[in-house]
């Protein structure tokens, strides 16, 4: 049986930013592969460079060292094979649900009848049938994120890249939307890369979890999640789930503490500067 090549290869990514305090290394020599159909989460404390990595992989941020390739093709700027779902609410408020979802198809020049039919399929997939003619202002935050997801899925990307898409939602909605993501990922065999700081979300959804260090963001460890599939949110009550959460938290705790101390020190410095 031939070995399967990784669909996404991230090699030695280094990203620096010029700041007032000097050069900040946001991401430092991060490398990993993602196999077709795999669900990989990148987890780390706030400020570890997760979102920078997301923007680099999505082609929205240039000026980095290293190489990213999709199916052997080097990524230089936004790539048709990578679909992005953002942390912030990103639906177009002037478009109905169906027009939002059909947006990438419209850009691709697909005929209206065809794109409407296809958009309906993806609306159905995220469980929003009946809301096709509604505007985002008429939907809840969770429903809007599902619209964003359907819109990205409609472009049929090889890799789905998500940056904390449920960060603004409450825990119950987050768990239920996690079920929806699992179901979609299993139905479409969608290769997915999730950026998150939420432990339970990462363990619930992932095949592997890449734990990042606090600034500069490096790979601390990659954890295989050997929980059975298909999964749903009921998995959170299992002993194995708890063990994985505890294991990753022990890795993450030290990094999160560094982040907290660093944040406190920065606040003290800025407070002192303000007082002087």
């Amino acid at each position: 049986m031939p070995a399967v090549d990784p669909i996404l290869v991230v090699e030695n990514i280094v990203k620096r930013f010029e700041t007032q305090d000097g050069v900040l290394v946001a991401v430092d020599d991060v490398s990993f592969n993602v196999m077709p159909g795999e669900f990989l989460s990148v987890i780390g404390p706030s400020g570890c460079g997760k979102s920078t990595l997301f923007n680099v992989m999505g082609g929205l941020l240039g000026g980095y060292e290293g190489r990213i390739s999709v199916g052997g093709e080097t990524v230089r700027g936004p790539h048709a094979s990578i679909g992005m779902i953002f942390q912030e609410e990103s639906t177009f408020p002037w478009r109905t649900v169906i027009d939002n979802v059909a947006f990438p198809l419209e850009i691709a020049g697909m005929a209206k009848v065809e794109r409407t039919e296809k958009a309906r399929h993806f609306i159905d997939l995220v469980g929003l049938n009946g809301f096709e003619r509604r505007y985002p202002s008429e939907l809840s935050g969770g429903m809007r994120q599902r619209v964003s997801m359907a819109r990205t899925l409609a472009s049929e990307p090889k890799i789905l890249l998500m940056d904390e898409p449920f960060a603004a939602l409450d825990e119950q909605t987050r768990l239920l939307l996690g079920d929806k993501v699992l179901q979609i990922q299993q139905d479409l065999k969608q290769t997915t890369l999730l950026i998150t700081h939420n432990l339970t979300e990462a363990v619930q959804l992932s095949d592997r979890i890449l734990v990042m260090t606090y600034r500069p963001g490096k790979t601390k460890r990659i954890v295989e999640i050997a929980l059975p599939r298909p999964r749903n949110s009921e998995i959170v009550s299992s002993d194995d789930f708890g063990r994985y959460v505890a294991q990753i938290w022990s890795d993450l705790r030290e990094e999160a503490s560094k982040g907290l101390k660093d944040d406190e020190a920065r606040r003290v410095r800025s407070g002192g500067a303000g007082a002087s």
Binding site: G58, G59, L60, P78, A80, I82, G83, M84, F86, E88, E89, S90, F92, W94, F103, P104, I107, T152, S155
Partner: peptide, 24 residues
Amino acid sequence: VLINVGRSFKLTPSQLYWKILFPA
């Protein structure tokens, strides 16, 4: 984020203007 959505879908500068910036 709306501009980034457009960029992620590889919109041309003209499409970015007419489909996102102008309606927004």
